[in-house]
Amino acid sequence: MSIILDKVNYTYSAGTAYEIQALKDINLKIEDGEFIGVIGHTGSGKSTLIQHLNGLMHATSGDIYYNGADIYDEGYDMRALRSKVGLVFQYPEHQLFETTIFDDVCYGPMNQGLPKNEAGLRAFEALRSVGFPEELYYQSPFDLSGGQKRRVAIAGVLAMKPEVLILDEPTAGLDPKGRDEILDQLALMHKERGITIILVSHSMEDVAKYVGRIIVMNQGSVMYDGIPKEVFRHYKELEAVGLAAPQVTYLMHELQEVGIPVRTDATTVEEAKAEILRVCQGRIR
């Protein structure tokens, strides 16, 4: 059970004056139950990459395997793939259309061919799991705030019960509280249901705190792929391509430079706190 990308290339507007190669020889293996962060600068190919995973974009060359089957094989059921690999786009405005939030969340399950009552059940479940307030279920989705719209959009995909959930910049434009709530709920879902989550973001802080693996994209290629501590060790190279490590990484490096013997691989504030306390207590004694 995994997604495998084998030498995937993608070129926009091939053969015209506007030709851009967005993906260059991408090789990746995504295992079941992973929580992955895909980070990269604007235009690094991260959005293009994730649209390949559910077959919305067709690679110019290369193959993608889902659970061992080549998704580009003739007769492969793309719609079935899309209900297994759920993709939530950045702008919820692009998918909300129904008169009520509840009906909108039902749209996905209804497309899967489920009867109305079961689709409704799924919608309830999905809305609850993203922490959407129940009294708003039958309001128009167009009156909601940005954060609430995003929850509805995520619920709309979750209601299809995907095995893999991909989210494109789910926290863009949200205030810190909304951001933390959504990410916490995703982490909870990952822990409780064991679904694979792929989070696209350019905020290192978000990614470092939650994910178990980071894929750094740069100019259409995979630049780094590994656990957060390993990837952030290259914080100087990340900076060179317009990205940055979490702020605590810089703090720890600076502490070390002035002679405080801390380990520099802390990626979250909590880890950094524990490490600094450890060193300080050692000194007091």
Partner: peptide, 16 residues
């Protein structure tokens, strides 16, 4: 471009 994005968002939810 917007149409393209909306189509994709709905196709991701199983639209045909």
């Amino acid at each position: 471009e917007e149409t393209d994005k909306i189509m994709k968002a709905q196709m991701a939810r199983g639209a045909d």
